[in-house]
Amino acid sequence: MLKVEDLQVYYGMINAIKGVSFEVNEGEVVALIGANGAGKTTILHTVTGLVAAKSGHVYLEGRDLCKLPAHKIVYLGMAHVPEGRRIFQQLTVYDNLRLGAFSLKDKAKIESNINYVFKHFPRLLERKNQIAGTLSGGEQQMLAMGRALMSNPKIILMDEPSMGLSPLLVAEIFKIISEVSKDGTTVLLVEQNAKKALSIADRAYVLETGKIVMEGKASDLLNDPRIKAAYLGE
């Protein structure tokens, strides 16, 4: 479904992504793990067009995205939950969700998506008219995910959804990611919480300073001694 080929990304002179290739198949949950500064966010930003690639290709269902402006991507069925949530702080929860459906025209579809989001995040329903900036960190994360789901994506990219959350909330967020996947949405999950990510993913890629150094089935990586030492703290 999503295919990235030999991606090179520069920030000025700095070569942040050095020839990365990976693939996400329909229905999969794929994890992309790596330490701080490895380039995970940069990859997601390049995939959705917020950062331009120097070379390489990004294909969504065979279509090359590199020449498309960022705002066209969501219309092709790809949503992105950005790092740090980036919800619209001054707007209400409900307006944030409405903006999440900006790419849709069909009112009935938007309504049913809102119900879908409220079903998975009952907390958002309780706080429908609250200004988003006053939500707790965990609620903001839920809103960021709900907002992305509002566009009815075929594939959703999530950048560290567990960042800064208490263990209980982390568990809840991961449970919802599994549910979203079961409902048929393909997931590309970027995480520093490698243990959690590997436990729900089908496959995973390990990124180190802009290069993929390892890939495989998530269950295999979870037991790999190198991964254990470097990312699982065991």
């Binding site: 917020l50 066209k72 991507i73 619209f88 707007l91 900006f102």
Partner: peptide, 17 residues
């Protein structure tokens, strides 16, 4: 709504389309 979104976060607004 698009204006409100852009005024807060251009990147996030683009992700919404």
């Amino acid at each position: 709504m698009a204006m409100l979104a852009v005024s807060e976060d251009k990147g996030a607004a683009q992700l919404m389309g």
